[in-house]
Amino acid sequence: MSVDQKQLDQLKQTLQADDYRMDVDVRGDSADVAIVAGPDACEECLVPKPLMQSMLGPVLGIEPASIRLVYPTDGPGADVTTS
């Protein structure tokens, strides 16, 4: 499967509404996704990681468990594999 760019853009726009940016790096059957907070981001406004992974899976064409997701609250050196 390939990335659904239209849906990915919609998801990014949703995050932007809460002042977050999403960086996506797809490599084969896995992906690294980092959510970056802007100055007006509300920490609680991000959906829980499992839900974000379930949203990203069909958009990226990757099993949710193979998406390494980093949230702003994870901090440097955090274990990014959540599934």
Partner: peptide, 13 residues
């Protein structure tokens, strides 16, 4: 309306 994506994701979930 900016959050249809997450609302729909929860409904699907």
């Amino acid at each position: 309306d900016a959050f249809r994506v997450s609302a729909d994701a929860m409904a699907t979930l």
